[in-house]
Design a protein around this nucleic acid. Structure first.
Lengths: 232, 232
DNA sequence: CCAATGGTTCGGCTGCGGCCGAACCATTGG
DNA sequence: CCAATGGTTCGGCCGCAGCCGAACCATTGG
């Protein structure tokens, strides 16, 4: 059966430890060089090259040459979503002991990170919860949200680039993305990306180098309180 | 990072063609026997047994023994969600699984039969559904039911020997038994046996010789309608 | 033009894991 | 008590895929 083959192939692509390590790094939504990815996976460059070629072939990654370097990034937000849902599974799979150990080891990642191009972790959940609590977002279908009229006003006042987000018509506008650490949906899609952009543009958050971890600045913490009515 | 290892492990579990075929079948949300799963995967029973054990160990599946059979099902909706998102990545959709040939082989057995000493098949399910729908049975624990006060009245009116059923104190009173053809629980235990006895005693059903198959008589069909509000 | 850096291709080694035959255990029904 | 059926365990075979060393290609800077 075709669907079965496709399922096992895409899962097998993610099922190798080296490739999984690369994908985890790429979950920050940014492009990384082949060397970086080889380093993080703990393998030689030539082995990494093979892995990367296979993932491009399997439509998990997109590659772009730039000078001597080749940059790889996730092919789409669907890839990010699939990885997140697998991580959610892995979270329940891990024993309580090892899970708490992992969480203790990386509390910052749990607090705030990027998931492809939008905010995740406690901050992503806080933003999403605020939007739904104030009636700015309403559930629409099993995996989407609808931005209400008050929600549009709120986003405009915040400086979110709504026209730009709407322009990417091929993309889901307000998508639900399951957060692997909080185990609840946060806002993704074009709107989620636009909101994250606003956080970076207004200096509320900063990406940490070579990591999906995001640091919430002091002004970001204040903004969460004043604009979203949330404390984290 | 622990989450990376966990990601690759859970993805690798789904990444084998045989296991993926089994998971695809299980996407219908029902429980299936080890033999069925081996058949659909195109492998021998012993190989399938190994795969199934690994998936139970990895918390992808839950197993439940029932007589000589062992039924496997997806461990949670999170598993289904992860598989679905992987299928979405592959650009394919989870189609309703095709039913096995065994399913069609014996329509009478599927319609009504005894399971030990109680009714099973479509009739067993119809009786059980009626009892729960009217509030006569309530779920109690993972594998039992509770007979409510209205349920007791209903049974007495029907002529079910409740005192006799309660006498066998060593036995489960109202047990959930997984129906292999309907793949849903039906009523078993002392109460299930007492109800089946009523069907035989009142001429609603007849055992066929040398078979577990049970024939529903015309009066039985009428009784199902008048007493249980069910048509089969 | 040459050296340095980043990346890929090729070939051969190696180990993991999927597979089956055979034997074994458990439950059921006659 | 015995045969039939469903499932698992064990042992051994075999192929695939991941890994690296070496060589090769491409871009950049001096």
């Amino acid at each position: 059966m075709i669907t079965v083959n496709a399922l096992s192939e895409v899962a097998a692509l993610m099922g190798d430890p080296a490739r999984a390590a690369m994908l985890s790094l790429l979950m920050d939504g940014r492009a990384h060089t082949a060397s970086d990815l080889a380093l993080i996976a703990g393998i030689t460059a030539q082995t990494a090259s093979g892995h990367l070629a296979r993932m491009v072939e399997g439509n998990l990654l997109a590659a772009r040459a730039q000078g001597r370097n080749r940059f790889y990034r996730l092919a789409s937000s669907d890839v990010a979503h699939a990885i997140e849902s697998l991580m959610a599974l892995a979270g329940t799979r891990a024993t309580a002991a090892s899970r708490s150990a992992a969480w203790r080891r990386d509390p910052d990642l749990r607090f705030c990170r990027t998931c492809y191009d939008h905010l995740a972790g406690q901050v992503g959940i806080a933003v999403t919860d605020s939007l739904t609590k104030h009636g700015y977002l309403e559930p629409k279908g099993p995996r989407d949200w609808k931005l209400t009229q008050p929600g549009e006003l709120f986003c405009e006042r915040l400086g979110v680039d709504l026209p730009g987000a709407r322009q990417a018509s091929s993309r889901h506008f307000a998508r639900q993305c399951l957060d692997w650490s909080e185990r609840r949906p946060h806002i993704s899609g074009a709107l989620g990306a636009a909101i994250a952009d606003t956080f970076f543009k207004r200096g509320w958050a900063e990406r940490l180098r070579r990591s999906r971890t995001v640091r919430l600045t002091d002004s970001g913490r204040r903004a969460l309180g004043s604009h979203f009515g949330a404390t984290v």
